[in-house]
Design a binder for these strands. Structure first.
Lengths: 337, 337
DNA sequence: GTGAAAGCGCTAACAT
DNA sequence: ATGTTAGCGCTTTCAC
C-alpha cells in the first residue's frame, strides 16, 4: 500500500508533477482549468503532501523541540499547554523530548531533537540540571533556544519567568498587613531560582514592616503535600509562636494546613496561610486557600513568541521577560487582625 | 552557517560519502582504520545525521502523533507521561497535536500529523467528539491507531481503558459494606463512557445489597470542584436522607465535601465520601479522601506498546485492554457503621 | 572494502 | 502556462 505521491497525481491528470507542486503551493502561474483538474485528482486519490520531503528541500521543519521534566507539575503542564496552542497558531508543531526522572539523559534528547532538525528548542523545566554543557553547546551552535524559569550561569539566555520576588512579597504582605509578625516560611527545594526569589520577596515584605528575617521560622519541602506537612510539623516544633505561614506552593500549603489542623491550630484564627500557584483545588480547600496566581499559560505563549522571533532573526538580542503575579485572597489568610 | 552533511565528512576524510553512511549505520563492510578516521571527522566537524533525510529514504519517521484535549486533566496528563516514556524507550518520538478547547479542529491536526508521516496516532482524550469521520477515514487508510478510554460506535478499535465498572463497584461497595443504604452519586458529564461505566458499577454494588437504584440520588457535574460543589448542594436539597456519596472523580468529591461542610454535615460521620482518581491532594483533604486509584501511566505505556505492535503488524487483530483499579481507603469513607 | 549510480518526494530555478 | 533540470541529505543496490 504505497503512499500517493505528487507524481501519481500528475500522471492521473496528465501534467508534469511540477505543475501539481504549483497547485498545492498556491502559485499563480497555473491555468484555472488545470488547477481544477489537479485539485480534483488530489481529492480522488487522497493525496497528502509529504511534510518530510518538503522539509528536506525547504530546510524548514516547522518543528520545535520541547524539553520538559515532569508532567505531574501543574506549573509546567500549563506552560506547555499555552506553548502548544501558540505554536500551532503559528504553524509549528512540538516534538516531545521530556527527560522525566532522568535528567542525565537530557543531552541525548537534545541531540535527537537537533537531528530531527527542530528549528528551536523550548526548555520547560526547572533549573536543576547538573550537566549544562549540552546547553552551552546549543548556544554555541546558534540553535534558537528559550527557557522558562531557567537561567544558566554565565550565559545570556532568553527566558520567560514570573516575577517571583514580587509574588513572594505580595504573599507575605498579605500577612504582614493583617498584623502578623511571626510568619513562617516553607520553601521549595534548593537550586530553584523561584525559591530564592520568593524567599527574597518574603524578606522584603518583612523588612518593610521592620520585622527581622529569622532562619528559625523557615523550613523546606520538595513541593509535595507530604513535604509541606512534614515541614509544618518541624516548624510547629521549633517555632510554635508563628501566627502565619507562607508556603511557596499550594500543594505544600495544603500539607501544612493538615499538620496545623492535627496540631489543633485553627486556620486562619490561630495561623493564617498563604500559598502559591492557585491550583484548581485551592478554592475548595478547608479553608479556601489564599494564594498567588501565576500566568502559567501566558508564560508558555510568550516563550513561543520569543522562540519564533529568535528563529526568524537569530542574532536578535536575548532577553528576559518577567510576568506579573496576582494575589488571590480567600479565607486561609484571615482578615485584618 | 550551513549544516554539516555526510559529504563534508566524506571529503574531509577523503572517502566517498557512502562510506560515511556505512559508518554511521554501523555496517560491517568498512575497514577499521577507515571507520576510525570517519568517526574522528564526525566528531571534529560536529556532524549530525539529518533524521529528515533519513526518514525520506527509509520511509520511517519514527514519530508518533499524539492527540490530546486537555493538559489540565490529571488523568490524561499522566497517560501522556507514561506514553512518552514508553515511546522513547523504543526509539520513537511524539508530535503534539492537541485540540484543546477546539474539538472541531481535530480533523485538521490529524491531517497535519499524517502529512508529517507519523507512523501511528495515539488518541489520549475523552470521547466527546461530534465529528468522527476523520477517525473513520484513518481507519480506512489503515493508519495505526490506538485510543485510551475512547470508543467509536460501529468500529473496532484498539483501546486501552480502565475497568471503570469494577472501579465504580469498588467505590460503592466500600460504602454499602459500611451499612450505607442511601448513597448519592455525582456523575461526570454526559457522553463519557467512563461515566456510564462507573455508574453501572454503582448500580451493581447496590443490586448486590438489594438496594434500589434511584435517580433521585443522582446529580451530575463536569469534573470540576465547582461542579461537584453545586451538585452536592442540589443533592442535599432533593435527597437530604443520604448518608454517603460516590463522586466520580476526586475534584468533584472535594467540591462536594465543601458543600457538605457548609451544610453542617460531618464527614464521614454524617455523610461518607468516596472519590475517584487518587490525585495527589486526595490524601491531604479534610478529611483525607478515600478514592479509586487508576493506573494512568500504565494506560499510556500499554497504549504505546499496542501502537508499536500495530505499526509492526498492520493486520494484527484490534483489541481492548482493561486495566484494574485499586480502592484506597482513607478517612472520608468512614469505618464500619 | 569502497565508490558510483539511482532514487526517496518534493521545490526552485530555468527553459519553452 | 507548463515542462525540464537540478538538488535537498541520505540509504541502498550494484559494480569494481
Amino acid at each position: 500500500m504505497r503512499r500517493v505521491t505528487i507524481k501519481d497525481v500528475a500522471s492521473h491528470v496528465g501534467v508534469s508533477y511540477q505543475t501539481v507542486s504549483r497547485v498545492i503551493n498556491d502559485r499563480p502561474d497555473v491555468a484555472p482549468e488545470t488547477r481544477k483538474r489537479v485539485l480534483q485528482a488530489i481529492k480522488e486519490l487522497g493525496y497528502q503532501p509529504s511534510a518530510i520531503a518538503r522539509s528536506l528541500v525547504s530546510r524548514r521543519s516547522h518543528t520545535l523541540g520541547l524539553i520538559t521534566a515532569d508532567f505531574s507539575d501543574y506549573f509546567f503542564t500549563q506552560v506547555i499547554a499555552g506553548a502548544e496552542i501558540a505554536a500551532r497558531e503559528r504553524g509549528y508543531f512540538f516534538i516531545l523530548g521530556s527527560s522525566e526522572r532522568k535528567p542525565e539523559d537530557e543531552p541525548v534528547y537534545v541531540r535527537l531533537l537537533t537531528e530531527r532538525q527542530v528549528e528551536g528548542i523550548l526548555f520547560a523545566r526547572p533549573s536543576t540540571e547538573k550537566d549544562t554543557s549540552h546547553i552551552r553547546a546549543l548556544l554555541r551552535q546558534g540553535v534558537p533556544l528559550v527557557t522558562t524559569v531557567y537561567y544558566l550561569e554565565g550565559e545570556k539566555l532568553t527566558v520567560v519567568d514570573v516575577d517571583n520576588v514580587d509574588g513572594g512579597q505580595q504573599a507575605t504582605e498579605c500577612l504582614t498587613k493583617s498584623g502578623h509578625r511571626h510568619i513562617g516560611l516553607i520553601k521549595g527545594p534548593e537550586g530553584w531560582k523561584s525559591v530564592d526569589d520568593r524567599t527574597q520577596g518574603y524578606r522584603l515584605a518583612l523588612d518593610r514592616e521592620g520585622i527581622d528575617f529569622r532562619e528559625g521560622l523557615i523550613e523546606g519541602g520538595d513541593w509535595s503535600e507530604e513535604s509541606g506537612y512534614k515541614a509544618m510539623k518541624r516548624l510547629l516544633q521549633k517555632a510554635p509562636q508563628i501566627t502565619a505561614l507562607f508556603a511557596q506552593n499550594d500543594r505544600m500549603a495544603i500539607g501544612a494546613m493538615r499538620a496545623l489542623r492535627e496540631a489543633g491550630r485553627r486556620i486562619p484564627e490561630d495561623v493564617a496561610v498563604v500559598g502559591y500557584d492557585d491550583i484548581p483545588v485551592a478554592a475548595y480547600c478547608e479553608p479556601p486557600l489564599s494564594t498567588i496566581r501565576q500566568p502559567m499559560r501566558e508564560v508558555g505563549r510568550v516563550a513561543v513568541d520569543l522562540l519564533l522571533e529568535a528563529i526568524e532573526n537569530p542574532q536578535a538580542e536575548k532577553r528576559e521577560v518577567l510576568l506579573k503575579t496576582e494575589l488571590i485572597v480567600r479565607e486561609s489568610s484571615g482578615g485584618r487582625r
